[in-house]
């Protein structure tokens, strides 16, 4: 493997930059359960980084550590060249990290539009008094953000459900709205926890296209968890493989595919 610390160019010619996020020796315990065991890896600017592994491997836990929802028992999180102090999840969001959830976590009582608008929460500046009177700034800010949100709605092709309460939408569309809500934050780093789980082939193709477009058009760095190997191989630049909380592989899709530990983990070779 060549030295990639200064960035690299992918097979399809996209330029990948320096390190955006670095996880250093992360360990996460829940009582006796060790969900993550001493894992280190990095995510580079502009890349699509996949995290794969069998059920219960600790993938979602890793995203939860990145988004500040779980505090690692040991280890350091570095973001944009600085060690991140312990923060609340909403502060992590303010730093430019947005995500979707394995089990859709939309605001069910709110419309598609409001859900996506809520994604821009960290950028809203007007105070309560101005909002209460709906004068000048408040109205202007709302319109400006609405314009950005409409672009996302167009991009995701969900104009027709703009005003629909999301609780009434079918699963596939909910997943799409959730992506929209994350995109609305204009994140530096976008975390996607199984964005295609439970989708049919067509929906998966749409979602893959959206993910590639986001990465391509907005230059958003993406870390995603996915079980569908075909999708992972197609989408990602580099892959981290986890099994029982440990990292058992890290590299390009081709590299991990030929890694013996990875093959064993997926074929269910016993651990002893």
């Amino acid at each position: 493997m060549n030295d990639m610390s200064q960035g690299y160019t992918t097979a399809d010619g996209r330029k990948i930059g320096g390190t955006l996020m670095e996880m250093k020796n992360i360990t996460l315990r829940f009582g006796g359960v060790v969900a993550i065991k001493d894992i280190s890896f990095d995510i580079r600017e502009g890349e699509i980084r996949a995290i794969i592994g069998p059920n219960g491997a600790g993938k979602s836990s890793m995203l939860n550590v990145i988004s500040g929802f779980y505090i690692p028992t040991e280890g350091e999180v570095w973001f944009r060249g600085e060690r991140r102090p312990q923060m609340k999840p909403y502060q992590v969001a303010q730093q430019g990290i947005a995500r979707t959830f394995q089990n859709i976590a939309l605001f069910k009582g709110m419309s598609t539009l409001d859900n996506i608008m809520t994604g821009r929460m960290t950028m809203m500046k007007t105070g309560m008094a101005a909002q209460a009177l709906w004068w000048g700034r408040a109205q202007r800010e709302e319109d400006e953000h609405r314009e950005k949100v409409e672009k996302i709605i167009d991009f995701l092709e969900i104009q027709h459900i703009r005003k629909t309460p999301v609780g009434r939408l079918p699963y596939g569309l909910q997943k799409r709205v959730e992506l929209g809500r994350a995109l609305a934050a204009e994140p530096k780093l976008l975390l996607l926890d199984e964005p295609m789980a439970g989708m049919n082939v067509e929906e998966k193709e749409d979602m893959s296209r959206f993910i590639l477009d986001v990465n391509d058009e907005f230059g958003t760095t993406i870390a995603l968890i996915e079980h569908d190997m075909g999708v992972v191989m197609d989408l990602s630049d580099r892959v981290v493989v986890m099994d029982y909380g440990k990292k058992i592989g890290d590299g390009t899709p081709d590299e991990v595919r030929n890694n013996q530990d990875v093959i064993d983990a997926y074929l269910g070779v016993s651990h002893d």
Binding site: Y90, T118, M121, Q131
Partner: peptide, 29 residues
Amino acid sequence: RNLTRGTVGRSWMAIRDMDIAAEIIGVNP
């Protein structure tokens, strides 16, 4: 009406509908 149609209102409803997700996407609970 003004408060509930804007940012503050959305932060309230987000907390109501799913407080954990709300915090993760940037709502200060």
